[in-house]
Each structure stands twice: as C-alpha cells, then as structure tokens.
Design a protein around this nucleic acid. Structure first.
Length: 411
RNA sequence: GUGGGUGUAGCUCAGUUGGUAGAGCACUUGGUUGUGGCCCAAGUGGCCGGGGGUUCAAGUCCCCUCACUCACCCCA
C-alpha cells in the first residue's frame, strides 16, 4: 500500500521536539498566572466574517492566506489565522465587560495560514497569546511588555531585541497618512522596488519597512509616525516608555515599526531575533482600542495584547528538554521478563520514572541501552544460570538489593 | 503566487567522461574488557523520490511529476 504523508506545512513533533513546547507552555502558565491572567480556551473554527472584520479586509492574511471553506450547510467558516479575534469575540459574546473592570486572558493553540513554508513559517503554527481588556492606562501597556519579557527570559532567551513604536489613533493617524502621501508624491516612485511601487498605494507604512537598500535610502527622510502623534497619544507613549525604563526593560524605539493587522493603534511592539532565518519576529503585539467595538461590543473598551510564535521560539531553545528516566530494568533472560515488569512497577509506585525491557537481549546491548538512556540506576534481570549468580531476580525483589548504581557501573 | 537548492541504507552523505551500488554513524552477533565505553572482526539493511525518453547499457544525460528545503512576498 502507498503510504500517506502529511500535508504541506504541518509537523509531527516527537518527544525531542514536543518537550520544548511543553516546557514553554508550562513556563507561560506560571508567568501569566503570576500576573493575574486566566486561561481562555476558544475554538479553532470561527465564522469567516470575524476575521474579515478584525484583521482587515485588505490584508494579505484575509485576502489570500486563510483556510476558508463552507460547512455542510453552506456557511463560510475559517480556521483561525491568529488568536486575538477569537478572544475578543468570546469576550464580547459572553459579556465579560463591565465598566471599569479589567480582564486578563491568555490562550494557546494552533493557528493556520496558507503560505509557502520556510524557516520559521508553517501553515499550522502555534501561538501563545495574552490579552488585557478594559485598561487604557499606560500601566497596562508596560505590564504587558514586562510580562512578555519575563516569559522570554524564563525560557532562557536573553539575546532578543524589543522594538517599540506608537502607531497613533484614529485622531492622529489620518494626519500622518496625509503627510506620508504628500511625501511619496514628492519622491520619484520609479526608483522604488517593484514591491514598494505597489505598496505605496496598498500599504504605505510597509514601504518604510522595506529591506531593499534603494527604498531605505529614498525613504530616509520620510515623515515618522512618532512625530505626528496627537497630544494624547504622545503622552500615553511617553508614559509607557517612562514605566518600562524604570522597570529596566531594554528596548529600542523603532519609528518605522508597523503591524500587519489593521486593528492595532497606539503602542505597537515586536520582539525579534537574528538567529532564525529571514523571519525575525518571535513575538509581536500592541494596543487595539477600537476592536471590541468593531466586533459588536460596547464602545470605549480598550484592549492590548501580544502573541508569541512558538515554532520560532523553539528554534532558539537549546536541546535537553526531554526528561531523563531514573532507572532501566535490563533483561538478559526472557524467563525473567515478568519479574522485570513487576519490579519496574514497584519502583514507579515509589515515585521513580523508568522502564523495563520487554525483550531479553545480550548483557552488552542491555547495558548499552541503559547507558544511552542516561538512567541513574540500571537493574539487571536474568536467572542464576545466565547470570552466574552475580545479580539475580530473587536477590533484587525479595532482598530489595539493587545492582550497582550507575556511577559504579560506568566509572 | 514567484525564484533557487536538494531527493542514493534507519541517520549524515560520497558516487569520477554513462559500465552490475559505497563510506561513516546506528543496529545485530562475536572478540577484547573492570558485564559499559574505547578498540577489533563479521553481519543485517537500498525498485538511487516517482513516471517517461535517449542508449547495447542510466544513480549519472533529457523531459515531466511529486516531496522536502531556503528566499521573495507576508507575518508571530
């Protein structure tokens, strides 16, 4: 029979790799709950409209990357390409909001985007996502940033850079866009790269972000967002900066940082690494004060949050996340197989982790196996005849005698 | 959607101007040994991604296809 292979852009994670994810999830739960966040579990499937309205009809994510299909009654469903929309939907639908009440939630799970896979980019990928509702104060922005930094530090990643910007609000952003349009009208668009000639109209902020040297040169003197912030946005941003400075967070201000999803405003940030290929962002987020309302919730419920890309973080983690076993029960005579199993069970009841061989092989290969597993102790089960009486089943079970500790064996 | 790279043993890879398929590691067995490791010897294991073509002869040349991978684009 022909074998069936997995579809493009998904992964099977065996223990060596899945242990990294388990470690990150465990750490995230610890850190997030220390900041007062509770876990929200939401569906992978949502109505397509949810993402169109939140992420933005014109974004690439919505236009060409979503797994969208009709269900059996012809309703359009979409496998979530990101987490925030679903969290906001749940928040609104369950009427969690109350005036003055702050809600902190986190969620974790697979996301889906139909893209060509490459390093750090899968069609099914996993995000850890945290959101705060009901707090417009800069303290919320600062706390979210600090929590993210704490999490990344706790999983052992220190060489990451935090980039920070403010995108303005519906008040000041149009003014900035006007200034930017004026600027692009003053430059020779022919000299921009092909992509940017298109982007000037579709997504002018992205032009400022272009890696092409020519584009970077041409847009060197483009108006910057922070220079066009309204008074409230300026004050807010300054307050956030003052707070994280005081808390000792190391970051860089990147006036050209933009977000890919339409709902962001004011504080926007990204955590990047230069060690995972061309996809540098390992986490990103920001404030989205208008989103709750645009998804049918009450007016003026602010929100802020971030998402971490687990695949990208996993690339930065070292090895050795697999838990080592405490013992191995070696089997050198099949007649002792049952005794080996029972003995292992007894050890497990006393709190040790380990395994017993099912099939007897030579002493040499059994000990080789124990060595490979890096167990602390190896027990040898055989019979008197085979063992020449060195270590016998009877001795170990009835007398409780262990074979030599690993150090003794392997010195 | 657009480009580049790679598909040969379980793994990492060699394979010369086309001439019957190789190494290291791993595994199994034996030797050595302080029951491991190290070292030595032997052994198991491949429709050379798939299909078509050229040729007396294709892993090697040509065409098609599939998969993986990196990059563009986009994003976490």
């Amino acid at each position: 029979m022909a074998k069936i292979q997995k579809i493009k852009g998904v992964a099977d994670l065996f223990p060596e790799e899945s242990a990294k994810y388990a470690f990150m999830e465990r750490t995230a739960r610890e850190v997030f709950s220390a900041y007062g966040y509770g876990e929200l579990r939401i569906p992978i499937l949502e109505k397509t409209e949810l993402f169109c309205r939140s992420i933005g009809e014109e974004t690439d994510v919505v236009q060409k990357e979503m797994y969208t299909f009709p269900d059996r009654k012809g309703r359009s469903l979409t496998m979530r390409p990101e987490a925030t929309a679903g969290v906001v939907r749940a928040y609104v639908e369950n009427k969690i909001y109350q005036p003055g009440k702050v809600t902190k939630l986190y969620t974790y799970g697979p996301m889906f985007r139909y893209e060509r896979p490459q390093a750090g980019r899968m069609r099914q990928f996993h995000q850890l996502d945290a959101e705060v509702f009901g707090a417009s104060e800069p303290q919320a922005d600062a706390e979210v940033l600090l929590m993210l930094a704490t999490f990344l530090s706790k999983i052992g990643l220190e060489k990451l850079s935090f980039e920070l910007n403010s995108l303005g609000c519906p008040e000041c952003r149009p003014l900035y866009r006007k200034a930017l349009d004026d600027f692009f009208n003053s430059v020779n668009k022919e000299e921009l790269c092909e992509d940017c000639q298109r982007r000037v109209n579709s997504n002018p902020l992205r032009v400022l972000d272009c890696k092409n040297k020519k584009c970077a040169e041409l847009t060197k003197d483009a108006p910057s967002i922070p220079d066009h912030l309204c008074r409230d946005c300026r004050d807010h941003f300054d307050a956030v900066i003052a707070l994280i400075d005081e808390a000792g967070l190391v970051y860089t201000l990147n006036p050209r940082l933009v977000r890919g999803l339409d709902y962001y405003q004011r504080t926007a940030f990204e955590v990047t690494s230069g060690d995972i290929g061309s996809q540098t962002a390992v986490a990103g987020g920001g404030r989205y004060d208008g989103l709750v309302e645009s998804l049918g919730g009450p007016k003026q419920v602010p929100g802020i949050g971030f998402a971490c890309g687990m695949e990208r973080l996993a690339m930065l983690l070292g090895d050795n996340f697999e838990e080592k076993l405490d013992f191995y029960v070696a089997l050198v005579d099949q007649r002792a197989a049952g005794d080996a199993l029972i003995f292992a069970e007894k050890l497990r009841k006393s709190g040790l982790k380990g395994e017993a061989a099912f099939v007897a092989t030579s002493m040499k290969s059994q000990l080789r196996q124990a060595n490979k597993l890096e167990v602390k102790k190896c027990f040898i089960f055989g019979t008197d005849e085979v063992e020449n009486g060195t270590v016998t089943v009877k001795d170990m079970i009835e007398g409780g005698q262990e074979s030599l500790p690993r150090d003794e064996y392997f010195k």
